[in-house]
Design a protein around this nucleic acid. Structure first.
Length: 311
DNA sequence: AAGTCGGGGGA
DNA sequence: TCCCCAGACTT
């Protein structure tokens, strides 16, 4: 859960997760739907599918976790950081970790104006530094301490250098340049204008699809969505006929606009509510309105529910 | 090596 | 509005 997600955002979901899946066996025997429901609103939903797969594999192999980096990294969703975290924090092995906190600390300590994602040499430099810090017998404590230092003192902005316990070995502090490190990522944001189709059958059920077409929320049960530059014209968009032919439309109405951002997409999504004359020929799952909030995982699609209207 | 994937909060 | 968070995986 903590991969690219702050502790505060995870806490509530983590409590419920551990309560309902107290063992790897409990997780392995849960349905994917139940697992995803526990991940509701956390984002990066492939993490949920991956940890579920990993739990099944571990149970398959007798319920024992691998105790080396190579076998851990072979499991779905476990990469360099998580493998190190399991070996170090759980099994107290002399192993390195490298997360965003440590990257920020090392960048400032060394005045490295590059990120480990730059190239192989950069990645190697950061991991070598991480291993230097993980040589002591109590490496798990050092690793925990570094992450905590990064979170509370060596912060992204307004770092508390004056109370930093390792200021003496920090080049950025010495040169008063902490604010210059690490370098920014600068992502290019893209605007996405379109609409979501909330099709009802006249009996309070809405059509959800697992649409692999949209650029986001792939393979998730959600409202059919289309990128459409003219979404703010109040006419029935022709492309909606990919899902429902116009001759099957009893009535329609634009009921609202949802704004949301998913990774680099800045989304403006109008909600187009449609009452179908017949369910015939419509592909997907018909879900009663009051069950939508439990069937839909993403926060974006949750916002759309507010504007659903069954005429 | 670059792109993709969520959502929320701090500044 | 921009940036980043206890990253991993695919292209």
């Amino acid at each position: 859960m903590l991969q690219q997600t702050q502790v505060s955002a995870v806490q509530a979901a983590f409590q419920k997760w551990m309560q309902d899946f107290p063992t790897v066996q409990a997780l392995a025997s849960a349905s994917e739907e139940e697992v995803l429901l526990h991940w509701q609103g956390l984002g990066y939903y492939s993490r949920a599918r991956n940890i579920h797969k990993t739990a099944k594999q571990i149970v398959q192999n007798g319920g024992k976790f691998p105790q080396n980096r190579k076998e851990l990294k072979a499991l779905p969703g476990i990469g360099a950081y998580t493998a190190g975290a399991i070996l170090s924090l759980a099994f107290h092995q002399n192993e390195a970790i490298l997360d965003g906190n440590l990257v920020r600390i090392f960048s400032r300590l060394k005045e490295w104006d590059f990120l480990p994602t730059k190239d192989k040499a950069a990645k190697d430099a950061y991991w070598e530094e991480a291993y230097n810090w993980a040589t002591a017998e109590d490496a798990f404590l050092t690793n925990e301490a570094l992450m905590e230092l990064g979170r509370t003192v060596c912060k992204k902005s307004n770092p508390l250098c004056e109370s930093c316990p390792i200021q003496k070995i920090c080049n950025a502090y010495k040169n008063n340049r902490a604010a210059e490190f690490p370098p920014k990522k600068q992502t290019q944001y893209v605007s996405w204008i379109g609409f979501a189709l909330a099709i009802c059958d006249g009996s309070g059920n809405f059509l959800l699809q697992s649409s692999p077409k949209s650029p986001f929320l792939k393979n998730q049960l959600t409202f059919p969505m289309f990128e459409y530059a003219d979404a703010f014209k109040n006419i029935f968009p022709g492309i909606a006929e990919d899902v429902i032919p116009y001759e099957n439309v009893k009535r329609f109405a634009f009921t609202g606009t949802v704004e949301h951002s998913i990774t680099r997409y800045k989304i403006q999504c109008r909600v187009l509510c449609v009452e179908a004359k017949s369910r015939k020929g419509l592909i997907g799952s018909w879900i009663p309105k009051q069950e939508l909030s439990q069937k839909i995982i993403s926060s974006f699609a949750q916002k759309i529910i507010i504007f659903t209207h069954d005429f």
